[in-house]
Amino acid sequence: MKERVTYILSRVLELMITLLLVSLLTFAAFSIIPGDTARTILGPSASPEQVEALREKMGLNDPLLFRYLSWLKGAFTGDLGNSTSFNQPVSSLIISRLPVTFGLSFLSLCLVLVISYPSAVISSRRPGKFWDQVFSVFGHVSFAIPPFVLSLVSVLIASKLFGYFAVGKYASPSKDFGQYIYCLLLPAFCVAVPKIAMTFKFLRASILTEKSNDYVRTSKSRGLSDIKIMFRHILPNSNVSVITALSIVLSDLLGGSLIVEQVFNLPGLGRLLIQAIGRRDFPLLSGIVFYLAAMMVIVYFAADVLMNMCDPRLRKNRGDSL
């Protein structure tokens, strides 16, 4: 029990340090701007008085450490000030765009799980045989297609063949949930395809490794059928190693969503991000970047804890590797 507590404490401490580092990286990325930030925002036509006023307003005249600390305080209390281009609080802007980006990532994660698990199980039943070959070739090719290219091509195909215009269509989930899912389905598919291939490949390899393990032979010698062994022993064991891979997949799906939103013209965080970049709206930009990264920190943390719960070998004797 004591070991559990120290483990959780040390993990939480690590979580805090990572969050701090992430905030530092985000802040640093915006502080390395060569020249005057206020001038960059306002453009060359602004008068020196306007620039000075903005500098004062954004606190640019304060020392760097002070600016970081006040920014950090804002970041953790959810108050990152006003967006310079939208004239709205950064946090409310971000919240208003969340349904699209999170919906897209979540839907694509579902697609990844629903497609990669069955195909990996079928594929690893008879490695090298027909179905394995089919799935593997599909996997190889789809791994190589960038999500935004797939989006463009599927937009082309959908509009030419089915007369389905996916671009720019969106319904808010509170208004029409069915329509919301319907609009996000094609974008989610485009985000998911390469990651389906990645998960499939990882899962297949993991299942095959587990399959060659001795405990499978033990269970076989006890008279268990292949299917029972697959669900009772092989899948739980490979899940342990897949958890980490899935957390990385989730991060990639989120990254992919940001870009695919742009192709489908969906009002999500990705669009907001590009708009913020275009208008050099640094408060908004830093808010989006920090909150997305902070969310991933928590996802990785959750994955690590989950893995620890699943695998008794990780629970004890941590650090005693010698």
């Binding site: 990572t18 990254g255 970047v289 902070a294």
Partner: peptide
């Protein structure tokens, strides 16, 4: 922890 190429985009 920065998903995808977010950090590179910002930089």
């Amino acid at each position: 922890c920065f998903p995808g190429i977010l950090l590179a985009l910002v930089a």
